[in-house]
Write a protein that binds this DNA or RNA. Structure first.
Lengths: 338, 338
DNA sequence: GGAGGCTTGTGAATCGTTTCATGAACCGTT
DNA sequence: AACGGTTCATGAAACGATTCACAAGCCTCC
């Protein structure tokens, strides 16, 4: 492997000069600069990032640890993060914990060993032990899609209560009075918050609490949604509308309706959550609560850069909360037609 | 930042001993080992990967550069790769070129600077100039989802001709004689190969070449598919079956059919390609050509590890070709009913 | 009791960069 | 000719780990 020393020898200069050509070309006279760049090209020299990092003390990559890379929502977050990071000359290491706290722990210690410039984390363990021990590592990080437990951590999230409220209010306005909420595991804060919002919309409209039936899927996937859909069809009083905890579940419900010959939206209206690309692409385009995932990725990275930057000392930890937005499509028309 | 030297001082031993405790504990007597590990815990020491890498000469991460992280196919490849990499103690740096040769070039030089252990690449530029110059860097790499241009490169791919053939043969068996192939940009080898396979199936069945109409979408996305779908409905002789270059396009076509009141599969059968999760999740579950993406990611990584391993010198470059498989679902029943 | 063999631990060299104090060479001015 | 001021280039000292030749201590065996 050719090093800066070989380049120096070839160009007949010292290693310091070669380094200057690379990092502050203006310090070097034009003709030695030319000699050095020629030598670099001839030898195919590529500077060693690890040596550089060892000397300078900080790396030029940041990490992004997501819960589920198969979920398009996180892919959007990642793209937002990557956009900002590349603008700042940072590489992004994208990793997938798959909701597994052990994998999460493994990655976090990898990040610490790599001395990444900072990390964006969607935490996988409920009690936050991993994140807590990561905090001791002195590495800047921002929690994504979850509010920080205390105010010594930056976080970027989306107001899930508002999201639930938007969805159910929309259904109520369209005339629905018998609504099912197909929830995910209630251990997740997101799921609970969306439910709270849904209940608030019910109360606000003066409907009785029984107007909302909650059924719980064990995972937030299409398969679980399909399952929830068929369970929902067996309910004593068939609902006229379903609000789903995310789009994957909604797609599953939609499929179950089709399989059972139940027409959407004529017999049952459906509202999803996340507004992933496939929501608009469904056979009956899905009404969905849009989360500004891309912007969230951007915002999180900007916070991270601020915390990891030169004026880090006067950095104030912040909790940024985005507002979701309802996107109405064919799966839930604005007024009930039956 | 606490270094190995601080640990040594704290434990009252030399730095060499600390290093031994970390890397070959059996060289150290139990009680000094205990003293050292205690010191490590007390100080919260984390070893610096860059220093280690500088000394040892090789890194413990590999890179995976995909064309489009939003495409579930590549997500599956990534998961397969990650599984194998983690088993071998390697971290994976997942990057997204977004089909942009400039971004690709940027990432490739980042990989070179990082001295990654190896790279899995789905090339973005047609002429392969980026990959060609990367090859000079002496870094092991495997081309994914494309066969290598020459035999000095490992590659893992899937036989696209067979895939096209499977799909169209299936449609012909079901009685279709007027088939549309909704292709992607014919600049992509994949698209051309699938078309070749489709044509072969037509010829093989003794049908005239006109039995297959090709329309081209400019992108392989749902939106382009929707567009292709509505164009297809305007054709003089309405086809009874559509074979799509991938599932995203197929989902778009499906949606266009629904919007126009054309029933699937009764009026038009649809076959997709890739068998992404959302294919099975579509309102009418999509028949699709399954590509073993996960296994492909695994195989590619195994090849890479072999090439980057200790017996690299006796490594033979190989081209691994996987066979696709047809998954029949509701969007294209086995026999034509009309 | 000396030779030889384990077991443990040491300390210095090394990896490839960046950075910084130092100095050489040259300029125009007095 | 002596001076201060620029402009360029140098060489050595870090950064934090790994590795390896070597030594100290102890045991065993003839």
């Amino acid at each position: 492997m050719v090093s800066i020393k070989d380049v120096a020898r070839r160009a007949g200069v010292s290693v310091g000069t070669v380094s200057n050509v690379i990092n502050r070309p203006s310090y070097v006279s034009p003709d030695t600069r030319a000699r050095v760049t020629a030598a670099i090209d001839e030898l195919g020299f590529v500077r060693s990032e690890s040596a550089r990092q060892l000397r300078v003390g900080r790396s030029r990559t940041m990490a992004l640890l997501v819960l589920d890379i198969a979920n398009p929502f996180f892919v959007d977050v990642a793209r937002g993060a990557e956009r900002v990071a590349r603008g700042a000359g940072l590489g992004v290491m994208l990793c997938n914990s798959g909701h597994d706290p052990n994998v999460e722990a493994e990655y976090l210690s990898l990040f610490a060993e790599q001395r990444v410039r900072g990390a964006l984390i969607t935490p996988a363990d409920a009690n936050g032990a991993n994140v807590e021990s990561f905090k001791r590592r002195q590495i800047p990080f921002v929690m994504v899609d979850r509010v920080g437990p205390s105010d010594d951590v930056c976080s970027v999230s989306i107001d899930d209560e508002v999201g639930g409220e938007l969805a159910v209010r929309h259904l109520i306005r369209a005339g629905h009075t018998q609504i099912v909420y197909a929830n995910g595991p209630s251990t997740l804060a997101q799921c609970r918050d969306r439910q709270t919002g849904a209940e608030r919309a019910i109360a606000e409209a003066g409907l009785p609490p029984e107007a909302l039936t909650v059924i719980e899927a064990d995972q937030m996937t299409v398969a679980s949604g399909r399952d929830a859909g068929s369970r929902l069809l067996g309910l004593a009083s068939r609902p006229t509308a379903v609000f789903c905890v995310n789009d994957l579940v909604a797609l599953g419900v939609l499929q179950a309706m089709f399989a059972a010959g139940v027409r959407v939206p004529d017999d049952v209206a459906i509202v999803g959550y996340d507004d992933i690309e496939f929501a608009a692409a469904a056979a009956v385009p899905l009404t969905s609560v849009r989360q500004p995932a891309f912007r969230m990725g951007q915002a999180a990275t900007e916070l991270l850069l601020e915390e990891a930057g030169d004026e880090a000392e006067r950095h104030q930890h912040r909790r940024v909360v985005f507002q979701p937005e309802l996107v109405v499509r064919a799966s839930s028309p604005a007024s009930l037609r039956r």
